[in-house]
């Protein structure tokens, strides 16, 4: 008696449901690519800046007077951006950990 009531009676098949999941997968993939791209850019930029700072005739020396004033702000902004992107990446992973 209960078996008759409780068994699944319908076949729930919907292409919209499948498409919705595929869209989410694609969006998550694009977000990860974006984060990876920005982080790579920051990493490369910092590396170039660090290497140039060590050279005597570096272009960094010519912009150093301007840079010193805003240096801390730039570092802070980069740090905040990196933390934000890391947080985004980690929370994306955390949501998957059930």
């Amino acid at each position: 008696m209960l078996e008759k009531f409780l068994k699944y009676h319908q076949e729930l098949i919907s292409q919209d449901f499948v498409d919705g999941i595929l869209k989410r997968i694609e969006k998550a993939y694009q977000t990860r690519l974006l984060i990876l791209g920005i982080m790579s850019f920051i990493g490369v930029a910092m590396a170039v800046f660090a290497v140039n700072s060590l050279m005597d005739n570096s272009w960094v020396l010519s912009i150093k007077p301007y840079l010193l004033e805003s240096k801390n702000i730039v570092y802070l902004a980069l740090l905040v951006l990196a933390l934000f992107l890391t947080n985004l990446f980690v929370s994306d992973n955390h949501n998957q950990t059930i």
Partner: peptide
């Protein structure tokens, strides 16, 4: 997609 199509009904129900 094939996996979703195969199991969507079971999981949704």
């Amino acid at each position: 997609t094939s996996i979703v199509e195969r199991y969507q009904s079971l999981i949704r129900q």
